[in-house]
Nucleic acid binder design. Structure first.
Length: 494
DNA sequence: TCTGGGGTCCTAGGACCC
DNA sequence: TCTGGGGTCCTAGGACCC
Protein backbone atom coordinates (compact mmCIF):
# COMPACT_ATOMS: atom_id res chain seq x y z
CA UNK A 1 0.00 0.00 0.00
CA UNK A 2 1.28 3.41 -0.93
CA UNK A 3 1.97 6.07 1.65
CA UNK A 4 1.22 9.01 -0.63
CA UNK A 5 -1.84 9.88 -2.75
CA UNK A 6 -0.08 9.24 -6.04
CA UNK A 7 -2.96 7.72 -8.01
CA UNK A 8 -5.26 10.18 -9.71
CA UNK A 9 -8.64 9.41 -11.22
CA UNK A 10 -10.18 11.86 -13.68
CA UNK A 11 -13.79 11.70 -14.80
CA UNK A 12 -15.29 14.10 -17.35
CA UNK A 13 -18.67 15.36 -16.14
CA UNK A 14 -21.71 14.21 -18.14
CA UNK A 15 -19.22 13.96 -20.96
CA UNK A 16 -21.32 13.34 -24.08
CA UNK A 17 -23.90 15.93 -23.03
CA UNK A 18 -21.15 18.43 -22.18
CA UNK A 19 -19.63 18.11 -25.65
CA UNK A 20 -23.08 18.67 -27.17
CA UNK A 21 -23.60 21.79 -25.09
CA UNK A 22 -20.20 23.06 -26.12
CA UNK A 23 -20.94 22.60 -29.82
CA UNK A 24 -24.60 23.63 -29.69
CA UNK A 25 -24.71 26.95 -27.82
CA UNK A 26 -28.51 27.05 -27.69
CA UNK A 27 -28.40 23.97 -25.45
CA UNK A 28 -26.12 25.41 -22.79
CA UNK A 29 -27.81 25.48 -19.42
CA UNK A 30 -30.63 23.30 -20.73
CA UNK A 31 -31.40 19.62 -20.21
CA UNK A 32 -29.63 17.50 -22.84
CA UNK A 33 -29.96 13.76 -23.18
CA UNK A 34 -27.66 11.73 -25.41
CA UNK A 35 -28.53 8.17 -26.30
CA UNK A 36 -30.83 6.05 -28.38
CA UNK A 37 -33.73 8.17 -29.60
CA UNK A 38 -35.85 5.31 -30.89
CA UNK A 39 -38.57 3.51 -28.98
CA UNK A 40 -36.08 1.00 -27.66
CA UNK A 41 -33.36 3.51 -26.89
CA UNK A 42 -31.74 4.14 -23.54
CA UNK A 43 -29.99 7.17 -22.10
CA UNK A 44 -26.22 7.16 -22.43
CA UNK A 45 -25.63 10.50 -20.72
CA UNK A 46 -27.92 13.13 -19.24
CA UNK A 47 -26.70 16.65 -18.57
CA UNK A 48 -26.95 17.82 -14.95
CA UNK A 49 -29.90 20.00 -15.96
CA UNK A 50 -31.71 16.80 -17.01
CA UNK A 51 -30.66 14.84 -13.93
CA UNK A 52 -32.69 17.28 -11.83
CA UNK A 53 -35.74 15.61 -13.37
CA UNK A 54 -34.53 12.18 -12.34
CA UNK A 55 -33.12 11.21 -15.72
CA UNK A 56 -30.22 8.76 -15.36
CA UNK A 57 -27.85 6.78 -17.52
CA UNK A 58 -29.26 3.45 -18.72
CA UNK A 59 -32.83 4.67 -18.23
CA UNK A 60 -35.14 3.97 -21.14
CA UNK A 61 -35.44 7.03 -23.33
CA UNK A 62 -39.21 6.64 -23.25
CA UNK A 63 -39.14 7.11 -19.48
CA UNK A 64 -36.72 10.03 -19.79
CA UNK A 65 -39.14 11.70 -22.21
CA UNK A 66 -41.92 11.29 -19.70
CA UNK A 67 -39.85 12.82 -16.92
CA UNK A 68 -38.25 15.56 -18.97
CA UNK A 69 -40.20 16.22 -22.15
CA UNK A 70 -38.55 19.57 -22.86
CA UNK A 71 -35.01 18.18 -23.00
CA UNK A 72 -33.04 17.95 -26.24
CA UNK A 73 -32.74 14.27 -27.24
CA UNK A 74 -29.67 13.65 -29.35
CA UNK A 75 -27.96 10.63 -30.86
CA UNK A 76 -24.27 10.42 -30.07
CA UNK A 77 -21.53 12.02 -32.19
CA UNK A 78 -18.75 9.68 -31.26
CA UNK A 79 -16.19 11.20 -33.56
CA UNK A 80 -16.50 14.45 -31.63
CA UNK A 81 -16.30 12.68 -28.28
CA UNK A 82 -13.23 10.77 -29.40
CA UNK A 83 -11.39 13.89 -30.51
CA UNK A 84 -12.18 15.65 -27.25
CA UNK A 85 -11.20 12.59 -25.23
CA UNK A 86 -7.88 12.37 -27.03
CA UNK A 87 -7.08 15.96 -26.10
CA UNK A 88 -7.75 15.16 -22.44
CA UNK A 89 -5.62 12.02 -22.48
CA UNK A 90 -2.79 14.04 -24.01
CA UNK A 91 -3.00 16.50 -21.13
CA UNK A 92 -2.81 13.62 -18.67
CA UNK A 93 0.27 12.23 -20.41
CA UNK A 94 1.95 15.60 -19.94
CA UNK A 95 1.76 14.89 -16.21
CA UNK A 96 2.90 11.27 -16.31
CA UNK A 97 3.42 8.60 -18.96
CA UNK A 98 1.46 6.18 -16.79
CA UNK A 99 -2.05 6.96 -18.01
CA UNK A 100 -4.69 4.25 -18.14
CA UNK A 101 -7.78 5.29 -20.10
CA UNK A 102 -10.83 3.41 -18.81
CA UNK A 103 -13.22 4.82 -21.38
CA UNK A 104 -13.61 7.99 -23.41
CA UNK A 105 -14.41 9.99 -20.29
CA UNK A 106 -12.33 8.37 -17.58
CA UNK A 107 -8.68 7.63 -16.82
CA UNK A 108 -6.22 6.84 -14.06
CA UNK A 109 -2.83 8.50 -13.78
CA UNK A 110 0.07 7.22 -11.68
CA UNK A 111 2.25 10.04 -10.39
CA UNK A 112 4.70 7.82 -8.52
CA UNK A 113 7.33 7.51 -11.23
CA UNK A 114 8.69 11.01 -10.80
CA UNK A 115 10.76 11.21 -7.62
CA UNK A 116 11.04 14.99 -7.78
CA UNK A 117 7.31 15.55 -7.54
CA UNK A 118 5.66 16.88 -4.42
CA UNK A 119 3.28 14.07 -3.51
CA UNK A 120 2.04 15.58 -0.28
CA UNK A 121 -1.72 16.03 -0.09
CA UNK A 122 -1.29 19.75 -0.72
CA UNK A 123 1.08 19.09 -3.61
CA UNK A 124 -1.35 16.71 -5.31
CA UNK A 125 -4.21 19.14 -4.72
CA UNK A 126 -2.27 21.84 -6.48
CA UNK A 127 -1.47 19.56 -9.39
CA UNK A 128 -5.08 18.43 -9.68
CA UNK A 129 -6.37 21.99 -9.63
CA UNK A 130 -4.09 22.90 -12.51
CA UNK A 131 -5.11 19.72 -14.32
CA UNK A 132 -8.79 20.57 -14.13
CA UNK A 133 -8.08 23.99 -15.59
CA UNK A 134 -6.02 22.51 -18.43
CA UNK A 135 -8.79 20.05 -19.25
CA UNK A 136 -11.30 22.88 -19.41
CA UNK A 137 -9.00 24.74 -21.81
CA UNK A 138 -8.29 21.94 -24.26
CA UNK A 139 -11.88 20.70 -24.37
CA UNK A 140 -13.48 24.08 -24.83
CA UNK A 141 -15.14 24.11 -21.44
CA UNK A 142 -15.82 20.51 -20.46
CA UNK A 143 -15.35 20.09 -16.71
CA UNK A 144 -13.76 17.18 -14.91
CA UNK A 145 -13.96 15.71 -11.45
CA UNK A 146 -10.67 14.56 -10.03
CA UNK A 147 -9.91 12.25 -7.15
CA UNK A 148 -6.57 11.16 -5.77
CA UNK A 149 -5.49 8.66 -3.19
CA UNK A 150 -3.22 5.78 -2.34
CA UNK A 151 -5.04 3.35 -4.64
CA UNK A 152 -7.28 3.15 -7.68
CA UNK A 153 -10.26 2.38 -5.48
CA UNK A 154 -9.81 5.44 -3.32
CA UNK A 155 -9.03 7.75 -6.24
CA UNK A 156 -12.13 6.60 -8.08
CA UNK A 157 -14.42 6.97 -5.08
CA UNK A 158 -12.92 10.39 -4.37
CA UNK A 159 -13.72 11.70 -7.85
CA UNK A 160 -17.24 10.25 -7.55
CA UNK A 161 -17.80 12.05 -4.27
CA UNK A 162 -16.99 15.48 -5.68
CA UNK A 163 -18.93 15.27 -8.93
CA UNK A 164 -19.39 17.49 -10.85
CA UNK A 165 -16.39 19.76 -11.34
CA UNK A 166 -14.89 18.75 -7.99
CA UNK A 167 -11.62 17.70 -6.46
CA UNK A 168 -10.77 15.48 -3.53
CA UNK A 169 -7.40 14.18 -2.39
CA UNK A 170 -7.87 11.55 0.29
CA UNK A 171 -5.32 11.94 3.07
CA UNK A 172 -3.27 8.74 3.42
CA UNK A 173 -4.32 6.81 6.51
CA UNK A 174 -7.92 8.01 6.37
CA UNK A 175 -9.08 5.63 3.64
CA UNK A 176 -11.21 3.35 5.79
CA UNK A 177 -12.76 6.33 7.59
CA UNK A 178 -14.00 7.41 4.18
CA UNK A 179 -15.06 3.99 2.92
CA UNK A 180 -16.65 2.28 5.89
CA UNK A 181 -19.82 4.38 6.25
CA UNK A 182 -20.63 3.99 2.55
CA UNK A 183 -23.19 1.53 1.19
CA UNK A 184 -21.47 -1.44 -0.45
CA UNK A 185 -22.86 -0.42 -3.83
CA UNK A 186 -20.38 2.45 -3.97
CA UNK A 187 -17.56 -0.01 -4.53
CA UNK A 188 -16.96 -0.47 -8.23
CA UNK A 189 -17.79 -4.09 -8.99
CA UNK A 190 -20.70 -4.26 -6.56
CA UNK A 191 -23.83 -4.08 -8.67
CA UNK A 192 -27.43 -4.93 -7.82
CA UNK A 193 -26.90 -8.71 -7.79
CA UNK A 194 -23.88 -8.58 -5.50
CA UNK A 195 -25.49 -5.98 -3.23
CA UNK A 196 -28.51 -8.24 -2.86
CA UNK A 197 -26.39 -11.27 -1.96
CA UNK A 198 -24.52 -9.19 0.58
CA UNK A 199 -27.77 -7.87 2.03
CA UNK A 200 -28.87 -11.45 2.61
CA UNK A 201 -25.87 -12.08 4.82
CA UNK A 202 -26.44 -8.84 6.68
CA UNK A 203 -23.87 -6.68 4.92
CA UNK A 204 -25.03 -3.23 3.88
CA UNK A 205 -22.05 -0.93 4.39
CA UNK A 206 -18.41 -1.18 3.48
CA UNK A 207 -17.63 -1.30 7.19
CA UNK A 208 -19.84 -4.37 7.61
CA UNK A 209 -18.15 -5.82 4.56
CA UNK A 210 -14.77 -5.34 6.21
CA UNK A 211 -15.97 -7.04 9.39
CA UNK A 212 -17.55 -9.98 7.57
CA UNK A 213 -15.29 -13.00 7.47
CA UNK A 214 -13.67 -13.71 4.15
CA UNK A 215 -14.94 -17.33 4.19
CA UNK A 216 -18.51 -16.05 4.38
CA UNK A 217 -17.90 -13.65 1.52
CA UNK A 218 -16.34 -16.36 -0.61
CA UNK A 219 -19.29 -18.63 0.15
CA UNK A 220 -21.72 -15.92 -0.88
CA UNK A 221 -19.92 -14.48 -3.89
CA UNK A 222 -17.38 -17.01 -5.12
CA UNK A 223 -13.63 -17.14 -4.72
CA UNK A 224 -12.46 -14.22 -6.81
CA UNK A 225 -15.19 -11.76 -5.96
CA UNK A 226 -15.34 -12.67 -2.27
CA UNK A 227 -11.62 -12.42 -1.77
CA UNK A 228 -11.34 -9.23 -3.83
CA UNK A 229 -14.14 -7.43 -1.99
CA UNK A 230 -12.82 -8.43 1.41
CA UNK A 231 -9.58 -6.71 0.51
CA UNK A 232 -11.15 -3.63 -1.04
CA UNK A 233 -13.30 -3.13 2.04
CA UNK A 234 -10.11 -2.72 4.04
CA UNK A 235 -8.77 -0.32 1.40
CA UNK A 236 -6.24 -2.92 0.35
CA UNK A 237 -5.88 -2.38 -3.36
CA UNK A 238 -2.58 -2.75 -5.16
CA UNK A 239 -3.93 -2.78 -8.71
CA UNK A 240 -1.44 -1.06 -10.96
CA UNK A 241 -2.13 1.71 -13.44
CA UNK A 242 -1.68 -0.08 -16.76
CA UNK A 243 -1.06 2.26 -19.69
CA UNK A 244 -1.64 -0.10 -22.61
CA UNK A 245 -4.40 -2.61 -22.31
CA UNK A 246 -4.73 -4.91 -25.27
CA UNK A 247 -8.24 -5.61 -26.38
CA UNK A 248 -9.49 -9.15 -25.90
CA UNK A 249 -12.53 -9.09 -28.12
CA UNK A 250 -14.23 -7.03 -30.77
CA UNK A 251 -17.96 -7.10 -31.33
CA UNK A 252 -20.89 -5.36 -32.92
CA UNK A 253 -24.57 -5.66 -32.15
CA UNK A 254 -27.85 -4.09 -33.11
CA UNK A 255 -31.22 -3.86 -31.42
CA UNK A 256 -34.06 -3.58 -33.88
CA UNK A 257 -36.90 -1.15 -33.69
CA UNK A 258 -39.24 -4.08 -34.37
CA UNK A 259 -38.62 -7.78 -33.74
CA UNK A 260 -37.46 -9.66 -36.81
CA UNK A 261 -38.66 -13.11 -37.83
CA UNK A 262 -37.53 -13.40 -41.45
CA UNK A 263 -34.54 -15.80 -41.42
CA UNK A 264 -33.12 -14.36 -44.63
CA UNK A 265 -33.15 -10.87 -43.14
CA UNK A 266 -31.53 -12.14 -39.96
CA UNK A 267 -28.79 -13.78 -42.01
CA UNK A 268 -28.24 -10.55 -43.94
CA UNK A 269 -27.92 -8.64 -40.68
CA UNK A 270 -25.47 -11.20 -39.32
CA UNK A 271 -23.38 -10.61 -42.45
CA UNK A 272 -23.44 -6.86 -41.92
CA UNK A 273 -22.40 -7.20 -38.27
CA UNK A 274 -19.72 -9.74 -39.14
CA UNK A 275 -18.41 -7.38 -41.79
CA UNK A 276 -18.22 -4.53 -39.30
CA UNK A 277 -16.23 -6.71 -36.90
CA UNK A 278 -13.91 -8.08 -39.60
CA UNK A 279 -13.17 -4.60 -40.89
CA UNK A 280 -12.25 -3.45 -37.42
CA UNK A 281 -10.02 -6.47 -36.95
CA UNK A 282 -8.24 -5.74 -40.19
CA UNK A 283 -7.91 -2.04 -39.44
CA UNK A 284 -6.42 -2.77 -36.03
CA UNK A 285 -4.17 -5.53 -37.41
CA UNK A 286 -5.80 -8.17 -35.24
CA UNK A 287 -7.27 -11.56 -35.86
CA UNK A 288 -9.18 -13.93 -33.65
CA UNK A 289 -10.08 -17.59 -33.33
CA UNK A 290 -13.45 -17.59 -31.61
CA UNK A 291 -16.60 -16.26 -33.24
CA UNK A 292 -19.59 -15.61 -31.01
CA UNK A 293 -23.13 -14.84 -32.05
CA UNK A 294 -25.52 -13.20 -29.62
CA UNK A 295 -29.24 -13.60 -30.09
CA UNK A 296 -31.80 -11.80 -27.96
CA UNK A 297 -35.35 -12.94 -28.53
CA UNK A 298 -38.52 -10.87 -28.35
CA UNK A 299 -38.89 -11.68 -24.65
CA UNK A 300 -35.30 -10.71 -23.80
CA UNK A 301 -34.07 -14.27 -23.34
CA UNK A 302 -30.53 -14.16 -24.61
CA UNK A 303 -28.43 -16.88 -26.17
CA UNK A 304 -24.81 -16.89 -27.18
CA UNK A 305 -23.33 -19.48 -29.49
CA UNK A 306 -19.65 -19.63 -30.18
CA UNK A 307 -17.17 -21.75 -32.07
CA UNK A 308 -13.44 -21.69 -32.26
CA UNK A 309 -11.46 -21.88 -35.47
CA UNK A 310 -8.27 -23.84 -35.73
CA UNK A 311 -6.39 -20.63 -36.46
CA UNK A 312 -7.04 -16.92 -36.10
CA UNK A 313 -8.68 -14.95 -38.89
CA UNK A 314 -9.86 -11.49 -39.82
CA UNK A 315 -11.42 -12.74 -43.04
CA UNK A 316 -14.94 -11.47 -43.47
CA UNK A 317 -15.97 -14.60 -45.38
CA UNK A 318 -14.81 -16.92 -42.62
CA UNK A 319 -16.38 -14.84 -39.87
CA UNK A 320 -19.69 -14.44 -41.65
CA UNK A 321 -20.01 -18.07 -42.65
CA UNK A 322 -19.37 -19.26 -39.13
CA UNK A 323 -21.65 -16.61 -37.64
CA UNK A 324 -24.48 -17.75 -39.92
CA UNK A 325 -24.01 -21.36 -38.82
CA UNK A 326 -24.13 -20.33 -35.19
CA UNK A 327 -27.26 -18.28 -35.78
CA UNK A 328 -28.90 -21.36 -37.29
CA UNK A 329 -28.43 -23.24 -34.01
CA UNK A 330 -31.03 -21.10 -32.25
CA UNK A 331 -34.77 -21.13 -32.88
CA UNK A 332 -35.53 -17.55 -33.91
CA UNK A 333 -39.04 -18.14 -35.21
CA UNK A 334 -40.71 -16.21 -32.41
CA UNK A 335 -38.91 -12.98 -33.23
CA UNK A 336 -35.47 -11.54 -32.63
CA UNK A 337 -34.88 -8.25 -30.91
CA UNK A 338 -31.08 -8.10 -31.06
CA UNK A 339 -28.29 -9.72 -33.00
CA UNK A 340 -24.58 -9.47 -32.29
CA UNK A 341 -21.35 -10.86 -33.70
CA UNK A 342 -18.08 -10.90 -31.81
CA UNK A 343 -14.58 -12.24 -32.30
CA UNK A 344 -12.32 -13.10 -29.37
CA UNK A 345 -9.16 -15.03 -28.75
CA UNK A 346 -7.35 -12.19 -30.45
CA UNK A 347 -3.83 -12.54 -31.74
CA UNK A 348 -1.62 -9.62 -32.49
CA UNK A 349 -1.07 -10.61 -36.08
CA UNK A 350 -3.25 -11.36 -39.03
CA UNK A 351 -3.87 -14.88 -40.14
CA UNK A 352 -2.07 -14.48 -43.45
CA UNK A 353 1.16 -14.08 -41.53
CA UNK A 354 1.06 -17.67 -40.39
CA UNK A 355 -1.33 -19.42 -42.65
CA UNK A 356 -1.80 -19.39 -46.34
CA UNK A 357 -5.15 -18.65 -47.85
CA UNK A 358 -8.31 -17.80 -46.00
CA UNK A 359 -9.67 -21.19 -46.87
CA UNK A 360 -7.15 -22.88 -44.65
CA UNK A 361 -8.59 -21.44 -41.50
CA UNK A 362 -12.10 -22.48 -42.21
CA UNK A 363 -11.75 -25.28 -39.75
CA UNK A 364 -13.92 -25.35 -36.74
CA UNK A 365 -13.04 -27.27 -33.66
CA UNK A 366 -15.28 -30.26 -33.41
CA UNK A 367 -17.85 -30.03 -30.75
CA UNK A 368 -17.58 -33.46 -29.17
CA UNK A 369 -20.46 -32.67 -26.90
CA UNK A 370 -22.49 -33.37 -29.98
CA UNK A 371 -25.74 -31.50 -30.16
CA UNK A 372 -24.66 -29.32 -33.02
CA UNK A 373 -26.78 -29.95 -36.06
CA UNK A 374 -24.68 -27.78 -38.30
CA UNK A 375 -22.46 -29.44 -40.74
CA UNK A 376 -18.87 -28.77 -39.92
CA UNK A 377 -16.69 -28.38 -42.91
CA UNK A 378 -13.92 -30.34 -41.40
CA UNK A 379 -13.52 -31.73 -37.95
CA UNK A 380 -10.09 -31.22 -36.53
CA UNK A 381 -8.79 -32.31 -33.19
CA UNK A 382 -7.38 -29.97 -30.64
CA UNK A 383 -6.16 -26.76 -32.17
CA UNK A 384 -3.36 -27.92 -34.38
CA UNK A 385 -0.06 -26.22 -34.58
CA UNK A 386 0.27 -23.75 -37.38
CA UNK A 387 2.39 -26.18 -39.34
CA UNK A 388 -0.13 -28.97 -39.52
CA UNK A 389 -2.75 -26.50 -40.29
CA UNK A 390 -1.20 -25.33 -43.48
CA UNK A 391 -1.83 -28.63 -45.13
CA UNK A 392 -5.40 -29.02 -44.02
CA UNK A 393 -7.71 -29.98 -46.84
CA UNK A 394 -10.22 -27.51 -48.13
CA UNK A 395 -13.75 -28.69 -47.82
CA UNK A 396 -16.89 -27.79 -49.67
CA UNK A 397 -18.51 -24.53 -48.74
CA UNK A 398 -15.21 -22.83 -48.46
CA UNK A 399 -15.86 -20.13 -50.98
CA UNK A 400 -18.10 -17.20 -50.56
CA UNK A 401 -20.43 -18.09 -53.36
CA UNK A 402 -24.16 -18.50 -53.22
CA UNK A 403 -25.19 -21.66 -51.49
CA UNK A 404 -22.78 -21.27 -48.64
CA UNK A 405 -25.26 -19.60 -46.40
CA UNK A 406 -28.39 -21.47 -45.48
CA UNK A 407 -30.68 -18.92 -47.05
CA UNK A 408 -28.69 -16.94 -49.51
CA UNK A 409 -30.15 -18.75 -52.48
CA UNK A 410 -33.69 -17.83 -51.62
CA UNK A 411 -33.43 -14.07 -51.92
CA UNK A 412 -31.38 -11.20 -50.76
CA UNK A 413 -33.54 -9.18 -48.41
CA UNK A 414 -33.00 -5.48 -48.16
CA UNK A 415 -32.49 -4.11 -44.75
CA UNK A 416 -34.63 -1.09 -43.99
CA UNK A 417 -32.75 2.08 -44.82
CA UNK A 418 -31.49 3.84 -41.71
CA UNK A 419 -32.97 7.32 -41.37
CA UNK A 420 -30.87 9.81 -43.22
CA UNK A 421 -30.98 12.46 -40.53
CA UNK A 422 -30.54 11.89 -36.83
CA UNK A 423 -31.19 14.43 -34.08
CA UNK A 424 -27.98 16.15 -33.07
CA UNK A 425 -26.12 15.26 -36.26
CA UNK A 426 -23.77 17.82 -37.81
CA UNK A 427 -24.91 19.09 -41.19
CA UNK A 428 -24.01 21.85 -43.60
CA UNK A 429 -26.18 23.82 -46.02
CA UNK A 430 -24.81 25.48 -49.10
CA UNK A 431 -26.50 28.77 -48.26
CA UNK A 432 -26.77 28.75 -44.47
CA UNK A 433 -23.50 27.08 -43.48
CA UNK A 434 -22.94 24.59 -40.66
CA UNK A 435 -25.60 23.55 -38.19
CA UNK A 436 -27.17 20.52 -36.56
CA UNK A 437 -30.32 18.49 -36.93
CA UNK A 438 -32.81 19.80 -34.44
CA UNK A 439 -35.76 17.62 -35.37
CA UNK A 440 -36.86 15.13 -37.99
CA UNK A 441 -40.20 14.37 -39.55
CA UNK A 442 -41.37 12.07 -42.27
CA UNK A 443 -40.54 14.46 -45.13
CA UNK A 444 -38.95 17.37 -43.30
CA UNK A 445 -35.78 17.97 -41.37
CA UNK A 446 -35.30 20.96 -39.09
CA UNK A 447 -31.82 22.42 -38.71
CA UNK A 448 -30.46 24.93 -36.23
CA UNK A 449 -27.67 26.90 -37.82
CA UNK A 450 -25.19 27.42 -35.05
CA UNK A 451 -21.73 26.28 -34.05
CA UNK A 452 -19.60 26.66 -30.98
CA UNK A 453 -17.99 29.63 -32.73
CA UNK A 454 -21.09 31.43 -34.00
CA UNK A 455 -23.33 31.21 -30.95
CA UNK A 456 -27.08 30.50 -31.00
CA UNK A 457 -28.52 30.72 -34.46
CA UNK A 458 -31.73 30.42 -36.47
CA UNK A 459 -33.82 27.36 -37.21
CA UNK A 460 -34.89 26.40 -40.73
CA UNK A 461 -36.82 23.46 -42.13
CA UNK A 462 -36.00 21.57 -45.34
CA UNK A 463 -37.22 18.62 -47.29
CA UNK A 464 -35.35 15.47 -46.21
CA UNK A 465 -33.92 15.09 -49.72
CA UNK A 466 -32.89 18.73 -50.15
CA UNK A 467 -29.73 18.56 -52.27
CA UNK A 468 -28.29 21.65 -50.57
CA UNK A 469 -28.13 19.87 -47.21
CA UNK A 470 -25.37 17.37 -46.43
CA UNK A 471 -23.86 15.53 -43.47
CA UNK A 472 -20.83 17.28 -42.14
CA UNK A 473 -17.86 16.36 -40.01
CA UNK A 474 -15.93 19.08 -38.27
CA UNK A 475 -12.57 17.37 -38.35
CA UNK A 476 -10.85 19.22 -35.56
CA UNK A 477 -11.38 21.84 -32.96
CA UNK A 478 -8.85 24.25 -31.80
CA UNK A 479 -8.91 24.92 -28.10
CA UNK A 480 -10.48 28.28 -28.76
CA UNK A 481 -13.79 26.60 -29.53
CA UNK A 482 -13.62 27.23 -33.23
CA UNK A 483 -14.46 24.79 -35.91
CA UNK A 484 -11.21 24.64 -37.77
CA UNK A 485 -10.98 25.81 -41.37
CA UNK A 486 -10.16 22.26 -42.36
CA UNK A 487 -13.69 21.24 -41.58
CA UNK A 488 -15.54 20.01 -44.60
CA UNK A 489 -18.72 18.22 -45.58
CA UNK A 490 -18.38 14.54 -44.70
CA UNK A 491 -19.78 13.34 -47.97
CA UNK A 492 -22.22 14.42 -50.62
CA UNK A 493 -25.80 13.71 -49.74
CA UNK A 494 -26.34 10.00 -49.77
C1' DT B 1 -44.69 0.88 -27.32
C1' DC B 2 -40.09 -2.04 -20.57
C1' DT B 3 -34.72 -2.95 -20.65
C1' DG B 4 -28.23 0.20 -25.82
C1' DG B 5 -23.61 -0.95 -27.24
C1' DG B 6 -18.99 -1.65 -26.30
C1' DG B 7 -16.32 -4.18 -23.40
C1' DT B 8 -14.04 -7.18 -19.07
C1' DC B 9 -13.88 -10.86 -15.81
C1' DC B 10 -15.63 -14.99 -13.49
C1' DT B 11 -17.88 -19.58 -12.91
C1' DA B 12 -19.10 -24.13 -14.02
C1' DG B 13 -19.15 -28.29 -16.52
C1' DG B 14 -17.43 -31.48 -20.05
C1' DA B 15 -13.66 -33.22 -22.88
C1' DC B 16 -9.25 -34.57 -23.01
C1' DC B 17 -4.44 -35.38 -21.66
C1' DC B 18 -0.94 -36.98 -18.54
C1' DT C 1 -9.33 -53.62 -13.74
C1' DC C 2 -10.40 -49.79 -11.06
C1' DT C 3 -9.86 -45.55 -9.09
C1' DG C 4 -7.94 -40.67 -9.32
C1' DG C 5 -6.31 -35.93 -9.64
C1' DG C 6 -4.52 -31.86 -11.93
C1' DG C 7 -4.31 -28.86 -15.81
C1' DT C 8 -5.96 -26.86 -20.10
C1' DC C 9 -9.24 -25.80 -23.57
C1' DC C 10 -13.81 -24.86 -24.90
C1' DT C 11 -18.68 -23.28 -24.37
C1' DA C 12 -22.59 -20.79 -22.11
C1' DG C 13 -24.18 -17.67 -19.10
C1' DG C 14 -24.04 -13.95 -15.75
C1' DA C 15 -22.45 -9.72 -13.34
C1' DC C 16 -20.58 -5.55 -13.96
C1' DC C 17 -18.62 -1.10 -15.94
C1' DC C 18 -18.95 3.24 -18.74
Amino acid sequence: MRSVPSIVHLDLDAFFAAVEQRDKPSLRGKPVIVGGVGTRGVVATASYEARVFGVRSAMRTAEARARCPHAAYLTGRFAAYRITSRAVMAVLREISPLVEPVSLDEAYVDLAGDATRDLSTAGVEELATALKERVREVTGGVTASVGAGTSKLVAKIASDLRKPDGLLVVEPGTETDLLHPMPVGRIPGVGPATAERLRRIGVHTVGELARAGEPDLVAALGQAHGHGLARLAMAEDDRAVVPLRESKSISAEDTFEHDIVDPALLAAIIDRLGTRVSERLTRERLSGRTVTVKIRLFDFTTYTRSATLAGPTDDVRVVNRLARRLLAEVDTSAGVRLLGVGVSGLADWVQEDLFGSAADVDLVDPRPRGASDVELVEAVGRPPAAREHRTAPTGPGTGDGPGDGPTSEQRVPREPEPPRWAPGQDVIHTAHGPGWVWGTGLRRVTVRFETAATGPGPVRTFATDDPDLAPYTPLTWDPGLRVSPKARPASPAR
